[in-house]
């Protein structure tokens, strides 16, 4: 039985620390894969959003709004409990999480890209058209080189947002750091009265240590290039 400050031992007892770190790896894996999918596809999506065809734009906005308005937790539930059942497929919670986070990331990244493209002076594109450049050439030589720099800070920031959203996946029973923490707390329920304080506190600090440096990098870049 541990009490008071002694309860902090729960973090390092046995293999608890390793287990928490393995859980953290799952968290990071979900975030990393989702970001790796979101950024390239999201940029393409953003370019689609500035399409000259009205129905393409409409479709894109529909997707963006649908994803943005529904809370991610709800999306996770819908995909985990419903989509898998309707289509009779077996998806692990982890896979569902990656799909939902990627969908969300694509929408967010698309909106950022759209904003960046819209912020370019209109005459550049019009002059290019007047010079006879094709749509593809305009994107390759005029739009993409200019928006890349503008998009890097918010893309880095998207990583921290992704990481901050990952604890939700514990609620669709993915064994990541939060879930591991809960297991440890349950195991120590009668032996360590303050386990939940130390474990949740520890996870709190881990998330801060992960996100703060990335957010800081994003901010510095934004200041330098802004």
């Amino acid at each position: 039985m541990y009490e008071g400050i002694d309860g902090i031992r729960v973090i390092f007892e046995g293999i608890n620390f390793q287990r928490l770190m393995v859980g953290l790896l799952v968290t990071l894996k979900i975030a990393a894969v989702s970001v790796a999918v979101s950024i390239p596809v999201g940029v393409l999506f953003g370019i689609l959003m500035t399409s000259r065809k009205k129905w393409v734009r409409l479709l894109c906005y529909f997707y963006l709004d649908a994803i943005r308005i529904i809370p991610i937790l709800v999306l996770l539930f819908v995909f985990y409990f419903e989509i898998t059942r309707v289509f009779k497929i077996q998806w692990s919670g982890e896979f569902v999480a990656i799909i939902v986070f990627s969908m969300w990331g694509i929408a967010e990244m698309g909106d950022l890209t759209r904003g960046a493209i819209r912020s370019l002076p209109k005459h550049q594109i019009e002059s290019a058209l007047a010079l006879g450049l094709s749509e593809n050439a305009i994107h390759r030589h005029i739009i993409i080189p200019q928006i890349t720099r503008r998009l890097i800070p918010p893309s880095i920031n998207l990583i921290t947002r992704m990481i901050k959203t990952t604890p939700l996946v514990a609620l669709i029973s993915v064994i990541e750091i939060l879930k591991v923490g809960q297991q440890i707390i349950e195991y120590n329920l009668y032996r360590n009265s303050t386990a939940s304080f130390w474990i949740y506190g520890f996870i709190f600090i881990v998330y801060f240590l992960l996100c703060y440096p990335i957010a800081e990098v994003s901010r510095r870049l934004e200041k330098r290039w802004g």
Binding site: P167, Y200, F204, F208, A215
Partner: peptide
């Protein structure tokens, strides 16, 4: 500002609800 912005709400809630009740 930095602490609150760089941690997830769910962890904050668990820390408040389950953690602080223990101390």
């Amino acid at each position: 500002i930095e602490v609150a912005r760089n941690t997830p709400l769910l962890i904050q809630l668990f820390f408040l609800y389950f953690g602080f009740s223990r101390i």
